[in-house]
Write a protein that binds this DNA or RNA. Structure first.
Lengths: 130, 130
DNA sequence: ATAATGTGTAACCGTACAGTTACGTGATTA
DNA sequence: TAATCACGTAACTGTACGGTTACACATTAT
């Protein structure tokens, strides 16, 4: 079950989880398109794409506006900034050499692991606070 | 139904779709930890976390090694590079001002929309293959 | 008015989570 | 050896997708 409160970037991450939806975004980078034309670019049925578009809308990754009987979809890259921000915290990690990472990790966890016994972390105490 | 072939970064995006799993990664940035201690940091049951860890493992976002009766999990930021690469293509978009984006989009789609009739994209031709 | 287009939605099916409790298993401790 | 610890896994439940077909609805075109 999903958590009761679904955050903003939650929807974003969730929307990006599907390869078809990412492909739709990739497509829209080339310019806005009506739903039907987007659907034409994929090997699935039009309603399937329609539902993908609904999720992308829900995540604010696309904007839609009517144009005659078309519904034109436009990329909105704004929510991707949140992803970028999240990733930012990890950049330093993959810039570290693996050896450095290993060292860092070892020193960090050293206090819990070096002593065979006394270090048994009391798992339960820290459980209530989140 | 999932596509037959699930790509590498597919697993990654999918693993990141869940807020708990992202939180686990955030936790591991501070240093490796055994499964139980990770579980202690969340309001869900230990088996639930165990399953999250399985997905993270499947996405290669964490490494696991046994240490006595503990299983220590370590962050592996490597797969996140793929996400970063994907995002890279969108950076230019959110750096553009909205007006510029609008202009770009309009000129791009102009050929299909400016002529009322003749431009009707033949959606069906590419659709027949499914 | 009627027909055709372009889209979204409803209803239905199968699968993959996310969570739970109960249980199995290897490593430590008594 | 027996008890305990730290996990993973199995079995089960509910929900959200991802896909399909059938249909409703609004907007042109005849």
């Amino acid at each position: 079950m999903r958590h009761p409160s679904v955050t903003y970037s939650d929807r974003t991450f969730q929307a990006l989880a599907d390869p078809t939806r990412r492909a739709v975004l990739d497509l829209l980078r080339r310019g806005s398109q009506p739903a039907g034309e987007i659907a034409g670019a994929f090997p699935v049925s039009r309603p399937a794409i329609s539902k993908h578009l609904r999720l992308l809308r829900r995540a604010h990754l696309v904007h839609e506006h009517r144009e005659g009987r078309h519904r034109v979809y436009q990329l909105n890259p704004e929510p991707l900034r949140a992803i970028d921000t999240w990733l930012e915290q990890y950049r330093s990690f993959w810039k570290m050499s693996l050896t450095n990472l290993k060292t860092f990790v070892e020193t960090e966890y050293a206090k819990e692991t070096t002593q065979p016994r006394a270090a048994k972390p009391n798992t339960k105490t820290s459980k209530g606070d989140r």
